[in-house]
Each structure stands twice: as structure tokens, then as C-alpha cells.
Simulated assay, not measured.
Amino acid sequence: MSQVQSAFKYSKEHEWVEVLDEGRVRIGITHFAQEQLGDIVFVELPEEGAVVKADESMGTVESVKAVSDIYAPVSGEVVEVNRELEEGPETINSDAYGAGWMVIVKLSNPEELDALMTAEQYEAFSKEEE
């Protein structure tokens, strides 16, 4: 699987954003992030109906190495949570851009998407982080 999905947007905190339709996005952590974390053993995600704000913590991911915050790359209301991750958090390691998605958010400020990096920008950014 590719390290970066070309159609997605990316944050400096290593979250990806997939635009689903007018006003809704799917969010997860990047392949780079899960690689840095190592084996993921637990994920704490916000509840449906929770309001998240860009650049603020919306949950945590725990690996054998550390516990890390998951930062909301955009603001809005959580309309769906990937409950499969409660029983199988390791899915993030095996399929970060697919079945390892975390939440779907109804955007409150769609312009925030413009502040995120393109795939090319994120690829360059993550190479600097190595």
C-alpha cells in the first residue's frame, strides 16, 4: 500500500482527511504515524455527537511504545465512530487508510480543509520528520 493517498489531505500532526461529500470527512492517522507508534493496542475516540475543534485533541492511540493524542485536523461534529477499532485497534497498523479510519465529521468550517497539506506536501513533510 502506498505511504500516502493522493486524494487525501494531511495535517502536521499526521492525521489524514478524506472528503466524502459536501460537508463530511473521514479522519484517521497516517501510515507514517502508525509506523512511528508501532503495534497499536488501544484507541480512545470521541463519541458520536461530540464537537471537535481543529488542532485540539479528540482522542488517544496507545501503542506498545507510547500513548499519543489524536488531533482533529478540522472542526465539526462527530457523526460516526469506527467501533471496529475498539475490538481490533491493530487494524490501524494493517490498513491505516482503509478499515483503520477513526471518525466521520460533519464540517463546521469547510475552509479549514484549505489549511491542510496535499499528499505531495505531506510526503515531503514526513521525510523531514524521520
Results as ranks from 00 to 15, higher is better:
E90D: 13
T30S: 13
Y97S: 14
I92A: 03
M102R: 07
A66L: 08
G38Y: 05
V74S: 06
E111C: 00
N93T: 13
S126R: 15
S75T: 11
V78S: 03
F42S: 13
E35W: 02
S94P: 00
A124D: 11
S94C: 03
Q36D: 06
L45P: 04
M117G: 06
H31K: 14
N109D: 15
P46M: 08
F42E: 12
A50N: 10
L37D: 10
W101F: 04
E90F: 14
Y122D: 07
L116A: 10
P110R: 07
P110K: 05
A54P: 05
E77H: 01
V64I: 15
A66F: 09
Q121G: 15
L37T: 11
A33G: 00
Y71C: 01
K53G: 07
Y71D: 09
N82A: 10
P89W: 10
S75N: 08
V81H: 09
V79G: 06
H31V: 00
A115I: 01
K106D: 12
E111M: 01
E111Y: 02
A96Q: 08
G49L: 10
M102I: 11
S68M: 04
G100Y: 00
F125I: 00
V79T: 12
E35K: 13
L116R: 09
E48R: 11
T30P: 05
S108L: 02
N109Y: 05
R83S: 15
S108H: 07
T60P: 03
A96M: 03
I92W: 07
Q34T: 01
M117C: 08
E120Y: 05
E80S: 11
K65S: 07
M58G: 04
I40Q: 06
